[in-house]
Amino acid sequence: MTVKDAPGGYTDFHPRWYRRPMPVFWWVRRRSYLAFVARELSSVFVAWFVAFLLLLIRAVGQGEAAYQRYLDWAANPFIIAVNVVALGFVVFHAITWFNLAPQAMVVRMRGQRVPPSMIAGGNYLAWLVASAIVIWIVLA
């Protein structure tokens, strides 16, 4: 075989390389890849939440009866199941987001680099405060 007819053929000066194909579901083979795809798919549940929230806003705007219909719809076991799964993914999003944030940003205070654990800690504190404010506003 000559080099000429051989991208695939082997010669002493033109070895035939073996290229490993990337399987379509490459991300099921490794835990870390699976966690990555799960993290990325959390965005679908973020979008689902926006739709769920817009329906709530519409119902609230339409009046008391519509609001009650919305509450009944949300109490449907299927919708509850979807929301429980969505909550799991959204919390996973929040945790991975806050944990990765210190890698992406460098914060300086008085010329000193703030240690990554402090940045992550600050994020979690902000999460706690924001959640408390949301719950207080809705329930107060």
Binding site: F52, A74, A75, L87, V91, W97, S131, I135
Partner: peptide, 20 residues
Amino acid sequence: GVVAALLVPALLLLFGVLFP
């Protein structure tokens, strides 16, 4: 990503799970 992480879990917990 930031606003979703900060606000969505609490809102979804209330309206999606605890109220229903």
